[in-house]
């Protein structure tokens, strides 16, 4: 187990380094002169030179790269060209919206999907299974911005229970924050739950066909008992895989929902930074998100090992 962990951590660090290299090459070297990218073709030579100086573009490439990696580690990422605030501060403030939102949505989706998946699988081919699968089909088919707007219409416009959008800010206290998170969380969670419930169900049904389930039943366990005590844990591998993918998506891919609810999250920041050619922000956001995906995959790998002893590698008798 210790060897397994050490190996995983080593791969993690290596992958992160490769990611920085790729991002650096793609965003700093390939597009030509970053300063003119940021300022546009009509920029004055003097302004260009000043920006080049500020960005350190006159230094050799490898110095810039190592400095950037060092900056990433220390969190000192420079000043945003358009927002005129430290990039790290900017990203951090957006993360305080996106990360809790992603976490909430993931939690809600899991809480809905896994019980529904189990319910469907344990009632395979019965009305309950059909019902759950129909809901899931609808959940998958509905575009999530449309669903978000429906929610706003119902809860904010008609019932006036919740804010239609905007983010109160953490200074306002936990209550208002949760209120502004509620609808986006639901809008994000339900479509994902629809998929996750399906995955849970089919993973369970597959495991229930296995020989060891028959063995368990030969010991006298009930069908339900076999599902809970023998099938469930074996079925978690595909479920965790999908959850990892979904969480990655929730961190960065929620731009539509953020726009519908006027939330100052990462998705909107990345959109704005790109449209304003704020290369410093873009570069650091991209590496941050790539890093997040890599770390999520790392944690998914660890979870695999927790679930299935065969994936712990190494120690045979």
């Amino acid at each position: 187990m210790r060897i397994f962990l050490a190996k995983r951590v080593f791969t993690l660090i290596l992958t992160l380094l490769v990611a920085t290299l790729v991002v650096f090459v793609v965003l700093e070297i390939l597009p030509g002169d970053p300063a003119s990218v940021m300022l546009g073709i009509n920029a004055e030579t003097e302004t260009l030179n000043a920006l080049r100086e500020e960005l350190g573009l006159n230094r050799p490439v490898w110095v810039r790269y190592t400095h950037w990696v060092a900056d990433l580690i220390t969190g000192n990422l420079g000043i945003s060209y358009t927002y005129d605030v430290p990039v790290s501060e900017l990203i951090l403030s957006r993360l305080t919206v996106s990360f809790p939102l992603a976490l909430l949505a993931m939690t809600l989706s899991t809480l809905i999907a896994i019980p529904l998946g189990i319910l469907a699988a344990s009632n395979h081919n019965k009305p309950m299974d059909f019902l759950v699968m129909s809901f899931s089909q609808i959940g998958i088919a509905i575009p999530n911005f449309w669903f978000a707007m429906l929610l706003t219409l119902l809860f904010s416009v008609t019932l006036r229970l919740l804010p239609a959008g905007g983010f109160a800010g953490w200074d306002a206290g936990i209550g208002p924050v949760l209120k502004s998170f509620l609808l986006p969380t639901i809008a994000l969670a339900l479509p994902q739950a629809a998929i996750l419930a399906r995955v849970t169900r089919s993973a369970l049904l597959e495991v229930l066909q296995e020989d060891f389930i028959r063995t368990a039943r030969a010991k006298g366990i009930t069908n339900q008992g076999a599902l809970w005590k023998h099938a469930l844990r074996n079925a978690l591998i595909p479920v965790v895989t999908i959850m990892g993918l979904q969480f990655s998506f929730l961190l960065a891919g929620t731009i539509i929902i953020e726009n519908v609810f006027y939330l100052p999250g990462i998705g909107r920041l990345i959109f704005q930074a790109i449209s304003q050619r704020d290369l410093i922000v873009v570069k650091n956001l991209v590496i941050l998100l790539a890093g997040a995906v890599i770390v999520i995959n790392f944690m998914v790998d660890l979870l695999y090992a927790v679930i299935d002893p065969r994936l712990r590698g190494g120690q045979d008798v």
Partner: peptide, 21 residues
């Protein structure tokens, strides 16, 4: 009755045991 009065051994020892228990 199963497992209590009648016990059964299966053909495939590779797949007949739960791999995660």
């Amino acid at each position: 009755i199963r497992g209590n009065r009648i016990g059964m051994i299966f053909q495939e020892p590779m797949t007949a045991l739960n791999p995660v228990k």
